[in-house]
Nucleic acid binder design. Structure first.
Lengths: 208, 208
DNA sequence: GTTTGTGTAACAATCGTTTGGTACTAAATT
DNA sequence: AATTTAGTACCAAACGATTGTTACACAAAC
């Protein structure tokens, strides 16, 4: 039948949805795809280095068409960033809840953190460090949220029976710097995120 | 005197230079200024986030006029990057030459490295991690040179009487990750670069 | 009179974003 | 059951701004 001469575009706006579930899924599907693709691109090429058209191409849309789903490129980044932080915080709190020993808890947190940050196809990956090319006001708000997230590690480090002579402030700062920047050289095929995390904790372990 | 009606532009191309030294200096002065300003901007806003006109404005030139000194924005970055690495390597080799004890040598290297990377007005500062928004081929060549530079630390780590159970490969990778990314949060007024470096070595110190 | 430094002005490309229209579906109205 | 209405998902095309870069003119110094 000649019915679909124009089928190359114009995917059905909605599926045959008697059930609201499916409809919801389709909508969220696209939203989620955009978030994930954008997250991956931001992580790979930075915020300034990623164009809206780049994102569109990877989802199969024109750049302009993205604006049906997003308010602006900036808001898209902020959204991704916030979701990533929230998801990470939840997963980490979950992981440390079952542990009692302070060093075990720190290790669990580090392992989870790295697994999140190094997961190549997850929107949680790009808890990007790319605040650089951001407008200053946005950057400020991002930093605030990041700081809030990192308070988990304040608690964890405070629990530690840490060797005297080590300042807990810089200790935590250094640990987070490490966790945040493994992504710069990590590639699949070498050590697993968990193995790396355990090496980190091994180095940072200085008992009182 | 009305002599300088047009003085807002057209600074004398050369000073009254009987001596070649001075002439050389002036030429290099401009060159160096451009290198430094560009370095600072790249470090602050990233490569993609810094425009040629941004750089020009900070040196007091129009964007187009910069092309009297540079071949392209890309080559400017590469040039800065290479000079920074060379300078850093020299200074670090210098600093460790006088030390004998392996841990002392590592500490000297770390202190020097951080002093270089955290010096706000030095073109050595931006041994930037911003390879992200770079064309892939350029990125590859930058990584090669960076790897060459970091071989200093391969030697230093190999010398260490390191506690067994610690893999020297990741150990070095983690140490460098740390040194390379302090710039993300460092600001003057807190600990000095040297103090931070010593804290790092204190944490990384695990004798056999 | 050539060389060196700079401004002016433009180039094509790309940027984020907006507008307007088209294909389509789901629900409402007839 | 047929037709209108509403609304979604998308493309096509353009918008003004900004990007890296070049061509050309002019002024000062040699």
């Amino acid at each position: 039948m000649v019915v679909n001469k124009t089928s190359s575009r114009a995917r059905p706006a909605r599926p045959s949805a008697f059930e609201d579930d499916l409809f919801q899924n389709i909508v969220n599907e696209r939203h989620r795809e955009i978030l994930e693709v954008a997250a991956a691109l931001f992580a790979e090429k930075g915020y300034a280095g990623t164009s809206v058209r780049d994102i569109g191409e990877k989802v199969g849309l024109l750049g302009g068409s993205l604006y049906h789903y997003i308010k602006s490129k900036e808001s898209l980044f902020v959204c991704i960033h916030d979701m990533a932080l929230q998801l990470a915080e939840d997963r980490i709190r979950d992981a440390i809840a079952e542990k009692k020993d302070p060093w075990d808890r720190l290790e669990a947190a580090c392992v989870t953190m790295l697994e999140i940050k190094l997961d190549p196809d997850s929107l949680t990956m790009p808890m990007i460090n790319d605040f650089q090319s951001m407008p200053v006001d946005v950057r400020a708000s991002l930093v605030v949220k990041r700081d809030a997230f990192e308070r988990i590690f304040v608690e964890l480090v405070d629990e530690l029976p840490l060797a005297s002579g080590l300042d807990r402030g810089i200790y935590r700062l250094l640990l987070l710097t490490l966790l945040n920047n493994i992504g710069g050289w990590y590639h699949e095929g070498g050590l697993t995120p968990a193995q790396i995390a355990r090496q980190i904790v091994a180095i940072f372990r200085h008992d009182r």
